Amino acid sequence: MRKSKSEKKEDGKGTFRETVSTVLWALAIAFVLRTFIFQPFHIPSGSMLPGLMKGDYIITSKYSVGYGRHAATPLPFPVKKGRLFEQEPKRGDVLVFRPEGGRNTFIKRLIGLPGDQIQMRTGQLYINGEKLPLEKVGLESFVNQFGNDEAADLFRETFPEGHQHLIYDSQKNSPSDITQIFTVPAGHYFMMGDNRDNSGDSRVPVNADGSGGAGYVPLENIIGRAEIVLLSVDEDFVIYKPWTWLNMRSDRWFKTIE
């Protein structure tokens, strides 16, 4: 039996409602996952070399640090101070955060905890007056922010708690090699890039216009802890140009961030 025009119209409305309902449910699930579980980020610079490269796409975990006011960026999240279900980050964690008054999202390594004294002396990091052990690993080259090849000494640095990671020292006696003593305020953290001479981090204050470095980072401004490199692309990769999709770094799939 053929359906009447009114029946066909009702069927069409039902199909439309089902489609809208499916889309809304999908958006709601995606929002919950992005806000409370994981969030992807793109690495725009080489400030975290050698561990993270420009072009890396990383996954951060939200639940590992709790939920601050930037948990649902760019949407507002109803937290003014502290973090919901707060878990204290550890020295050595690689964290994604928004500097206080800053315009951009940063990714750096947690160096200083509340109350710590942080200082750079002749290119070496001191925490609470103690120089961190450094082990020379070798020499590497990388592409700097100007697109030029640059050489860097590769060191293994060890935190007081035993955490080890690799850093670059590419410029002897650079302005960032000697700093004042930074005393980390309560409720704040001190962040630094692993590419020590090419990182605008907590050694540099945030300017009035939102540019500059990171300054001291309030605990509620932490977004998540970087867990893995999902994939990595080179400079020639463009998402809307399928013929560039093969320009990926085959050795950086699902790489754990240390």
Rank of each mutant, 00 (worst) to 15 (best):
Gly129Thr: 13
Arg196Asp: 01
Tyr57Lys: 13
Ile257Leu: 12
Val217Gly: 03
Glu258His: 08
Tyr216Ile: 01
Arg34Tyr: 12
Tyr168Leu: 11
Thr183Met: 02
Leu230Asp: 14
Asp194Met: 03
Asp209His: 00
Glu135Val: 14
Arg249Tyr: 07
His42Ala: 14
Lys9His: 04
Phe38Val: 13
Leu230Ser: 15
Met48Cys: 06
Gly123Trp: 07
Leu27Trp: 06
Met192Trp: 01
Lys13Ala: 14
Val184Thr: 03
Glu7Arg: 10
Pro160Ile: 04
Glu88Phe: 00
Arg196Lys: 08
Ile127Arg: 09
Glu100Gln: 01
Leu134Asp: 07
Thr256Arg: 14
Asp234Ile: 00
Ser4Trp: 03
Gly147Ser: 03
Lys62Ile: 05
Thr15Ser: 12
Gly193Ser: 14
Gly101Thr: 00
Thr179His: 08
Val217Leu: 13
Arg203Thr: 06
Met191Pro: 00
Phe85Thr: 09
Arg34Val: 10
Thr244Asp: 10
Gly14Ile: 14
Ser202Tyr: 03
Leu154Glu: 06
Leu246Asp: 12
Thr244Tyr: 09
Asp169Trp: 03
Val32Asp: 13
Ser47Ala: 11
Thr244Glu: 08
Pro175Lys: 00
Ala226Asn: 00
Asn173Glu: 13
Val32Phe: 15
Phe155Thr: 03
Ile167Phe: 09
Asn148Gln: 08
Ile228Arg: 15
Pro44Ile: 06
Thr35Gly: 09
Asp209Arg: 02
Pro40His: 10
Thr256Lys: 14
Phe182Glu: 05
Thr15Met: 14
Ser176Gln: 02
Phe85Ile: 10
Gln124Gly: 06
Ile228Ala: 12
Asn195Gln: 02
Arg69Ile: 10
Pro50Phe: 10
Ser174Gln: 02
Lys5Cys: 04
Gln87Arg: 15
Ser47Lys: 04
Pro74Trp: 01
Val206Tyr: 00
Ala28Glu: 00
Lys172Glu: 15
Ala30Thr: 09
Leu75Met: 11
Leu231Trp: 14
Tyr67Thr: 02
